[in-house]
Design a protein around this nucleic acid. Structure first.
Lengths: 209, 209
DNA sequence: GGCCCACTACCACTTTTGAGGTATCCAGCA
DNA sequence: TGCTGGATACCTCAAAAGTGGTAGTGGGCC
């Protein structure tokens, strides 16, 4: 296989040791090479433009911005960009948002190297695939109504330990309206009280710690 | 430097790609080598006995047990074991428990490779060191009273969305006693309500999602 | 023996939450 | 145009949470 047909892989992750591992695995394959690496979102955007890689492995948590935002920015400029989200986190909402933003895959970091390179090949050839494990997470909450922006706002304040009255003040609405939002949040998440709502939201990737 | 004086490193982590990265970095050093790897706690204990490595890099989150438990088990059998905790998580309570259990270091996974190998050398030569970043986390809550076992029990039930009455039933105590525990938890964590107490506890590594 | 601490328990009281319901306004859509 | 969904608001009422204080019991420690 000639140089020019190798899949050029771009790795974006703030863990140097993990990038080292990716480099080792990718470069051990005859049909691909790790062309360039980045540790932050800003760096990722800049280097993407410079190198126009074939496949990008993108971490969800970066020091300066979220992987989702990087993904959106890249696909905004380059709609054909083939990006695989590569992360430890498995909240179904994060998976869903990534796929909606045009990710070609969503892989957990504990994935065996063999499967990772296979996914890189699949993403490169245009297929959109996620491992069964990830798909299952997504399927868990398929039919469910998702939270509105306002509800997520209220949820974040809940996590901060604010009383309904305080939330009302901060959002410039009445306490009664806050109660309505809280009620809807609990209903949609299947929580029995605000505390459980926050825990479920954290688990599902709706809010972050 | 002869073969026999190389630092023999043991890596325990359920992320194959990260282990790959550690292997690459460690083996690139003249004075150390990655001798053996494990992906689970059970495996770690078994392989430790077989290989008696000089320095162990131990992940905090493993599929079958916590890294702390593995650390305790190892140091129970081999009190001189030199173990460095190696993890993404930075709750001060987890750091504290690891150091109390006899860890020689506590390193975040986003650490630059150069510093990691330096820490391996330091741990091997008997020094107990943590990076300033980690030490700062520890210092944040130095003088504070820690939660009792019972309080942590109650906290876990809080996170599950249980009412005081339900917690009382499950722990076979009165609801009034539960209230006392909840009050103490909130006081010690500086939380204004049970929801914030749970969020703080998650952030500090007192409970897990 | 005496002391401290964790756990337990009960009482009284206020504040906050959560469950009902109804209703208006506005924007987007069929 | 009429319908729907989201955000807003107000009402009532019961239940739960949170605050304050007092106190017994058993273990461990000086």
């Amino acid at each position: 296989m000639s140089e020019s047909t190798r899949i050029r892989v771009f790795s974006v992750d703030d863990h140097p040791l993990l990038r080292e591992g990716i480099a080792a695995i990718v470069n051990s394959q005859a049909d691909m090479e790790l062309t360039v690496q980045a540790a932050t979102g800003r760096e990722a955007l800049q280097l993407y433009r410079q190198h126009l890689p074939d496949v990008t492995l993108l971490d969800l948590r970066l020091p300066d911005m979220t992987g989702i935002d990087v993904l959106i920015a890249i696909r905004n400029e380059f709609p054909d960009a083939r990006v695989i989200m590569f992360t430890t986190f498995e909240g179904d909402v994060e998976i869903q948002r990534a796929m909606e933003a045009g990710a070609r895959g969503y892989v957990l970091k504990n994935m065996p190297p063999r499967e990772l390179v296979e996914l890189i090949r699949q993403a490169h050839s245009g297929r959109k695939r996620v491992p069964a494990e990830v798909a299952a997470k997504l399927a868990e909450h398929l039919g469910e109504e998702r939270l509105t922006q306002r509800e997520v706002d209220v949820l974040r304040h809940l996590a901060g330990g604010n009383r309904n009255r305080d939330i009302a003040e901060r959002l410039f609405i009445s306490e009664e309206t806050v109660k309505v939002h809280v009620k809807h949040v609990m209903e949609k998440l299947g929580a029995s009280d605000r505390t459980q709502a926050v825990v479920i939201a954290l688990r599902r990737g709706i809010i972050q710690l």
